[in-house]
Design a protein around this nucleic acid. Sequence first.
DNA 1: AACGCAATCAACCGCCTCAAA
DNA 2: ATTTGAGGCGGTTGATTGCGT
Length: 247
Amino acid sequence: MFQTLIASANTGTTSPTRAGSSGSPGVRKGQWSKEEDNLLRKCINQYSPMKWSHVPKLAGLNRCRKSCRLRWVNYLDPSIKRGSFSEDEEDLIIRLHKLLGNRWSLIAGRLPGRTANDIKNYWNSHLSKRKVNVEQRILKPIRPQSVTLPRNWTWLRMKKQGEAEPKMETKVPDGEEHDQWLMMINDSKYDHENYYTLNDQMASNQHADFGFECVYGVGEEETTVDAILQWDGLLSDIKLWSDSEVE
DNA sequence: AACGCAATCAACCGCCTCAAA
DNA sequence: ATTTGAGGCGGTTGATTGCGT
């Protein structure tokens, strides 16, 4: 069933670049030729989805799996958007970077058609210099973290049953209760919204990663509060931007 | 035209996480 | 519990391109 498409691409000479780097001996490195691109494209179209480790053999390429994957996700994938970044995209990158730091894949996830590599390159060559002028104060990036919650926690149970989705909203804690943060949950089953607190008292027998959609306090209070206020603004912008993309 | 420098970007490396054996 | 392989990530490198002199 699995048949090598064409074996002729193996005749290319090994690139002299990056000599001495580790890797399988005899595996081709460096710039991809048009012929190699075509073989990879044809292979993906024909066999996808499949394991990347199978790709070099199936495609008839003398490349390692990582090189094949990288070439596809950063260059050949037809969903990749080419051309310069728009002002809106630039703005979004700056704001996301302020919140997330160098988590390029997360940032790319919010920019349809842009790859993490493209964004990283763009940041390093264009935006990182401008950032100094744009930022009045240094804000600590929020890094969404895993949360420990009790197994019987209402929302988790509902989430498993597909009855609740986290609403992308956060609230700054009131008064002196700095260690308590509220997460707003849209309770679709009962058609109302609840606030749940996350605090140290919760039993540690359930682990859940809320990823991008959950934000809560980290670092100094002042910067955290500031960042969360920005976060809410960012989420609104993302929604507006996403909506405009659909139209 | 020739040269040097800076900017850009494709590609690689090493590391990490996770799941399966 | 440990090992192994695959996928994915951020940091870095080096070839290419553009620009000024």
